[in-house]
Design a protein around this nucleic acid. Structure first.
Length: 827
DNA sequence: CACGTGACTTGAAGTCACCCGT
DNA sequence: ACGGGTGACTTCAAGTCACGTG
């Protein structure tokens, strides 16, 4: 069975050539033989003018965003707002938002294939061979679930053709389309598939995907075998792939020793890095038959039905607490006089003192909240009666000195310290779930601190008190030893044995007691990997529905039913602008907004477009007064099983990446050029999702330094040109700008220098541009959360880009489940 | 069915480590 | 051999969304 797939992919060869230009379609085709392809089908259909809305034109088989689509473009702007999560940044940051204006939308819509189901199913099969056990199980589940509510057919979509703008009154102003070149932003929207959790009652089939998996002991056995089998290969270069990291990881054997498995892992990684880069050569692509067979046979574990069960045995060592406070005895000044504080009071004063040089000191709210809490500790008869008369600089200075001391330590000392720390942490780093050792994510209680909310948070500055074992609930297997309480004389708040959840421990957030802080497994764990995969599969499924969904909301822009109209516009926002859903919030939470909580003033219609729903409302009013996220998500579920708002983000992000990579990667380019293509695609995604970062303090300095250098080089260039001229005439060079004499060089040598200088200038200019370009754009968030790693992995395989150029070590671990994807994989 | 709660994902700031050019 | 810059990694705030409850 698996074999057959192998055949298709066949040939190990992977011709990259086939991928090339005219080619995308090829690859698709190829793939199609193998069946799984939604990718393909998707694309193909794109050749056809899509019936729905935004169309895409095709060129050589490629999809191209069409100008029309762009029409949708910016008709609406969201105003920045301190309130919106979407646009706002945190305190120090920027708060403006790119809004519609920058988004050019070209959506590709495709029509919806009718065979949704099939595809899903196929898909899962196809991949099954390479996937980790856990994953496979998931797939099965998914496949089953994927049921269809199918979408209406395209004919109705005709109204999609109508530019959104016209329907809504929103509108647009098309800007010229920029496709073609690099800069073009094509953001197409993706599609999706998969189903995530079981919960849906409507679907009888499922049980949750999540649950069943790992818990079955049988699995671990299989896993073991598998890994045993594969292990040996690690060393052989070309075979590496046979043993995907993922498998090793996921199925890690293990019982017992995690560390050993861990080590293996590490080795693997290394191997890859070194000689056999991950996807470098052809050999890589081959898939291994056996493995797959094994997997296949493993399909769905019976045990999975226990609905909610996430594990059978769970062993871990609890969590670690920060060391007790060590008083330093430095006194603050109150009205100029030193004041002695108790250790508790001093501790809190110190928390405040270290923030003296931050801009929280400019925030009244911060100081006020701090004072309220600190005052309580001081007691009412304390000499200190107000914050204004306190001078914390002695403590601040002392902290600076300590920091400096630390910095001055020799690297040896630092290392020793680090090792010491590691040793202490070691036992907390792992948990053993159903016999498999997995990394724990964060295993320490949060230390006391002054709360730093984002934006103008009403609680900023409040004391977040120390967490003690008495606050902590531990979740552990019934038969597992209860973790020793690390603080003598204290005990855990509660011991639970709840196998329907994945948390290992939690405590209530002292700032907002109705919230919990959880200890979970790390991102590389199979629990996380599984749900990650499910997420992307669901997003892929959306691809099959997106055309109809767009058609439907476009139509409803004009609906007489206000609620419908609002849902339509909201869905449009979510789709085109990648807004988040926007749950309702209390007043004591951060003041951000999402789609459903947009306020009238957050949105501006541009040009002649209007947002009808905005019309009789005033600033401060809810833009969508008939909506909340539940209503919206319920509506989405009617369109696709289990669909919720957040999948549009995942879908659009992954789709865009896949699309851009495939359109813009040129054949035969070197790795560097390919990486640039990737980064550019990644950047577009980050822009779509509005992933921001604050501009680094040194940014402007760096820019001016760079431009200075550029100027210098330009001057040098000028000089060189003169020298060249003179050299050709047999004259010696002029003195340098520094007044010194230069060596006599041959014209050839000078020419060479000129070329070098030119290249340097060019490089610096491009560095400067990307730096400026990315100064407020964070690429990491999308890479971690929104881009289906299989897209990246497959692309790397196709273009011989070593995967580690794109994914860091931890990301590789996190995406272990995706590393053995077929090179032809398309989102 | 409105609402609060619980569990899990996502996002950006902070911190650390290492890499690179000088 | 150094110092600054980067990017990786950590931390914790802030989202999403389903569920249970009354």
């Amino acid at each position: 069975m698996s074999r057959k797939f192998d055949d298709d992919d066949g040939p190990v060869t992977f011709k990259r050539s086939s991928v090339s230009k005219s080619t995308q379609s090829h690859s698709e085709v190829r793939r199609s033989t193998s069946h799984s392809n939604d990718g393909r089908s998707y694309r193909k259909s794109s050749d056809v003018p899509s019936s729905n809305g935004h169309n895409s034109s095709s060129q050589n088989g490629k999809l191209v965003p069409c100008a029309k689509a762009s029409a949708v473009e910016s008709s609406v702007g969201i105003s920045k707002a301190s309130t919106s999560m979407v646009y706002v940044r945190s305190p120090r940051g920027i708060s403006k938002f790119s809004s519609f204006e920058n988004k050019k939308e070209s959506l590709l819509e495709k029509k919806i294939p009718v065979h949704v189901n099939e595809e899903n199913k196929e898909d899962s099969e196809d991949e099954v061979e390479n996937m980790p056990l856990s994953v496979r199980m998931m797939n099965n589940i998914n496949a089953k679930k994927a049921t269809p509510i199918v979408p209406k057919k395209s004919s109705e979509n005709s109204d999609d053709d109508i530019p959104l703008s016209s329907r809504l009154s929103l509108s647009k102003a098309p800007k010229g389309q920029q496709y073609g070149s690099n800069a073009s932003v094509k953001q197409e929207r993706p599609s999706t598939l998969s189903v995530k959790r079981p919960l849906d009652k409507s679907d009888s089939l499922h049980f949750s995907g999540k649950k069943s998996k790992l818990s079955d002991p049988a699995q671990s056995i299989n896993a073991k075998q598998i890994s045993a089998k594969s292990e040996p290969k690690v060393e052989e270069e070309d075979d590496n792939d046979d043993v995907p990291l993922s498998q090793r990881m996921n199925k890690l054997p293990t019982l017992v020793d995690k560390s050993s498995s861990l080590k293996k892992l590490t080795n693997v990684t290394k191997v890859n890095k070194g000689a056999t880069p991950s996807f470098k050569k052809k050999a890589n692509f081959k898939k291994s038959g056996n493995k797959s067979e094994q997997f296949k046979s493993t399909k769905l574990p019976p045990s999975s039905e226990d609905g909610q069960k996430k594990w059978t045995t769970l062993v871990h060592n609890g969590i670690i607490f920060p060391p007790p406070y060590k008083p330093h005895g430095i006194k603050i000044l109150y009205k100029g006089k030193p004041v002695t504080l108790t250790p508790e009071q001093e501790e809190v004063a110190t928390l405040y003192a270290v923030m003296l040089d931050t801009d929280y000191m400019q925030k009244q709210k911060f100081k006020e909240n701090f004072w309220t809490d600190w005052k309580k500790m001081l007691g009412k008869n304390h000499v200190i009666q107000n914050l204004e008369d306190c001078d914390f600089t002695p403590i601040y200075d002392w902290c600076q000195i300590e920091k400096e001391k630390k910095k001055q330590m020799s690297s040896k000392e630092k290392k020793a310290l680090r090792e010491e720390k590691l040793k202490q942490e070691e036992k907390y780093m792992w948990a053993i779930i159903d016999g498999v050792k997995e990394k724990v994510g964060n295993f320490r209680a949060e230390p006391p601190a002054l709360f730093r909310g984002r934006g103008e948070h009403p609680k900023m500055g409040k004391l977040k008190r120390r967490i003690t074992p008495n606050d902590v609930v531990i979740n552990i297997g019934k038969d597992a030893p209860i973790p020793e309480c690390p603080i003598p004389g204290e005990s855990w708040k509660e011991i639970r044995h709840d196998n329907t959840v994945t948390w290992l421990a939690y405590w209530n957030d002292p700032i907002n007691p109705k919230l919990f802080k959880y200890i979970f497994l790390g991102a590389s764990s199979s629990w996380k990997g599984q749900s990650d995969r499910e997420k992307y599969e669901k997003a892929r499924m959306l691809k099959n529905y997106i055309g109809n969904i767009r058609a439907a909301y476009t139509k409803d822009f004009a609906s007489k039913d206000i609620t419908k109209q609002q849902i339509a516009v909201a869905t449009y926002f979510i789709d085109k602008l990648a807004l988040r859903a926007g749950n309702d919030k209390d007043d004591d939470e951060a003041d951000t907004v999402g789609c459903c909580t947009l306020k009238v003033e957050n949105v501006t219609a541009e040009g002649n477009n209007k947002l009808k729903i905005q019309s009789d409302k005033r600033p401060g009013d809810q833009l969508f007064d008939k909506l909340d996220t539940t209503i919206l998500n319920n509506h989405l579920k009617e369109l696709m099983p289990n669909l919720t708002a957040k999948f549009f983000r995942t879908f659009n992000a992954s789709f865009t990446l896949d699309d851009m990579l495939n359109k813009e990667t040129k054949d035969g380019e070197d790795v560097k050029a390919n990486i640039l293509v990737y980064q550019n695609a990644n950047k577009q995604v980050a822009i779509i999702c509005n992933h921001q970062r604050s501009v680094s303090k040194s940014h402007s300095g760096q820019i001016s330094k760079l431009s200075e250098k550029i100027e210098e080089h330009k001057a040098l260039l000028k000089e060189l040109k003169i020298d060249l001229d003179r050299a050709r005439k047999g004259k010696p060079p002029l003195k340098g700008s520094d007044g010194k004499n230069k060596r006599n060089l041959s014209p050839e040598a000078i020419e060479k220098k000129i070329d070098q200088t030119d290249a340097k200038i060019e490089k610096m200019q491009s560095d400067m541009m990307t730096k400026e370009d990315l100064k407020t754009v964070a690429l990491g968030t999308s890479r971690i959360n929104y881009l289906d790693p299989r897209i990246t992995v497959a692309w790397c395989k196709r273009h011989e880009v070593p995967i580690e150029k794109i994914f860091s070590k931890t990301l590789l671990e996190k995406f272990a489940w995706a590393l053995d994807v077929d090179p032809d994989f398309r989102f």
